[in-house]
Design a protein around this nucleic acid. Structure first.
Lengths: 200, 200
DNA sequence: CGCCTAAACGGACCTCAGTCCGGTTGCCTG
DNA sequence: CAGGCAACCGGACTGAGGTCCGTTTAGGCG
């Protein structure tokens, strides 16, 4: 994969043709993901559909996972905004235990809504890539903080990764598809899990 | 991937050339994994090292993940034997909570010992493959049983997957390598986690 | 011992993610 | 408007996982 240097906002201007192509690519990807399913859509197909060369596609997005992530950027930013500055119980104002439960319920809903694309985003190329890229570190910091607030004697660093691993797309999709668990059941399970772990 | 029809024991005889080649392949894979690292070893290289055609390799093992799994079969069977019929606290004789703690500690040790290969084994090709193949279902059944024994009011089906997701190779490798957590810290965290969830 | 067939063999081939690099173009400066 | 250059474009190329299918062989049987 390339050294990557995504559209840092400070970087002068994004050239107009580049911006146009980025939009074309995102639109094409969304269209094909809808039409054929995420896992059946190749990067070649997206490039062709967008009327763009393959090199251009990879220049703008680095790899398949990052493209998927870019498609979810809007809804993901909204979610982050909600749990950082939004109303309780997700945002500040509620107790940490309550917030953590709401966080998981929100994330489960997010996965239920955008499962296929999230799967592509989290199915990293190299092992461990999924922990470096995307919104993972923001989620992790948030969960870590809530754990610490709830019970300072816990190993928050450990538990943050552990609790998030119960909310990863691959697992949740498997629980929903293969095991037939409903979103509400997963949410109820998450609530019990959090209460047990935080002892609240 | 092929329809797959692995060495069912009932299948008459395994032809001698097939058995010989299987051994050659396993030996070659182990050698190259040791020498160059798992992630830097291609299937082509293994076939060449084994003095065997690529088709033969894939005929015997289906895919990369299954080959990795086959390499770990011995130590994995030993582990399964230990938690099913071995001495307490891993095997029967101890209480479910204690056994579950011991199970996680054992699995964490297993991962620490064979991390790279387990990573290849669990990094499925298709999404969710890791839940279908390998020892996952045996682990799952065991964990599910212990949860149920410990506290019948819990959603054992949900929690089995959830607890196992904290012991998957990708996560644990990340915690050890990127976050610098020691095995004993992970084991201590696991113990706290289990106690919290099972309320024991 | 020779035949026959199911099973195994092996390498050419396919697809697809990701890279490279020679040619092109937007945009800033004078 | 002209020139220069950094950024961008695109498609040929690489490497790896996985498949196909014509050829070979083990080993049971007469």
């Amino acid at each position: 994969m390339k050294p990557i240097e995504l559209p840092v906002l400070g970087a002068r201007h994004e050239r107009s043709d580049a911006a146009r192509n980025r939009q074309k690519i995102l639109a094409a990807a969304e269209r094909l993901f809808m039409r054929d399913g995420v896992s059946c859509t190749s990067m070649d197909a997206i490039a062709t559909e967008a009327g763009v060369g393959k090199g251009t596609l990879f220049r703008r997005f680095g790899d398949r996972a990052s493209l998927a992530l870019a498609l979810l950027q809007a809804s993901d930013s909204a979610f982050q905004e909600a749990f950082i500055r939004g109303p309780a119980p997700l945002g500040p104002g509620a107790g940490p235990c309550e917030r953590l439960i709401a966080f998981g319920e929100g994330l489960l809903g997010h996965i239920a809504a955008h499962g296929e694309i999230l799967l592509a985003a989290q199915t990293a190329s190299g092992p461990g890539r999924r922990f470096d890229a995307g919104p993972y570190s923001a989620y992790r910091a948030h969960v870590r903080m809530l754990i610490e607030q709830a019970n300072a004697r816990l190993d928050a660093d450990y538990l943050a990764d552990v609790l998030l691993s119960c909310l990863c797309a691959e697992l949740v999709m498997h629980q929903m598809r293969a095991q037939g668990m409903s979103v509400s059941r997963l949410q109820a399970g998450w609530e019990q899990l959090v209460k047990g772990v935080l002892a609240c």
